[in-house]
Computed example of a mutant assay.
Amino acid sequence: MKFKNFPMVPRVIFGRGCFSQLQEILMPRRKNSEAPFIFLVDDVFESNQELISKIPLLFGDKIIFIPTDEEPKTEQVDVLVSKIREYTTQSPSGIVGIGGGTVMDLAKAVAIMLTSNGKAEEYQGWDLVTREAIYHVGIPTISGTGAEVSRTTVLTGPEKKLGINSDFTPFDQVVLDPELTNGVPRDQWFYTGMDCYIHCVESLNGTYLNAFSQSYGEKAEDLCDEVFYNGKLSKEETQDKLMMASWHGGMSIAYSQVGVAHAMSYGLSYLLGTKHGLGNCIVFNHLEEFYPEGVAKFKKMQERHEIELPKGLCANLSEEEFETMINVSMGMDPLWENAVGKNWKDTITRVKLRNLYEKM
Rank of each mutant, 00 (worst) to 15 (best):
E132G: 03
N343C: 02
E319T: 14
S213A: 15
L176C: 11
L335H: 04
I52G: 04
F284E: 04
G99V: 07
A147Y: 01
A109R: 05
V351Y: 00
E321H: 03
A263H: 08
G231D: 12
P67W: 06
K345W: 01
N355S: 15
C18F: 01
W247H: 13
V79C: 01
F59A: 11
L353D: 03
A211R: 13
L26H: 07
L353W: 04
A315G: 00
G279P: 09
Y87P: 00
P292M: 10
E323Y: 00
G99P: 09
V103E: 04
I95C: 07
C196Q: 06
Y357C: 06
M8A: 13
G273Q: 03
V137H: 02
V44M: 12
F39G: 04
L180M: 08
S329E: 08
I13C: 01
Q90P: 00
G99A: 10
R11D: 12
T347W: 01
L114Y: 10
L356D: 02
V9H: 05
G97I: 09
D42M: 06
K300D: 11
S150F: 00
G312S: 08
L242Y: 02
E319W: 00
I98T: 07
S82R: 13
E237H: 01
E179K: 14
G206K: 06
V351L: 11
S252A: 15
L180P: 05
V175A: 07
E71H: 09
N48A: 10
S329N: 07
G94N: 11
S246F: 02
S215G: 00
I63L: 08
M325T: 07
E86F: 02
L22T: 08
P72W: 11
E70H: 12
F228M: 08
A107E: 03
E70R: 12
I112C: 04
F39E: 04
E50R: 07
Q90H: 13
I98V: 15
L223N: 06
N182W: 06
P140H: 04
P36F: 07
G267C: 08
D225A: 09
Y229H: 10
K299W: 01
T145I: 02
D69R: 12
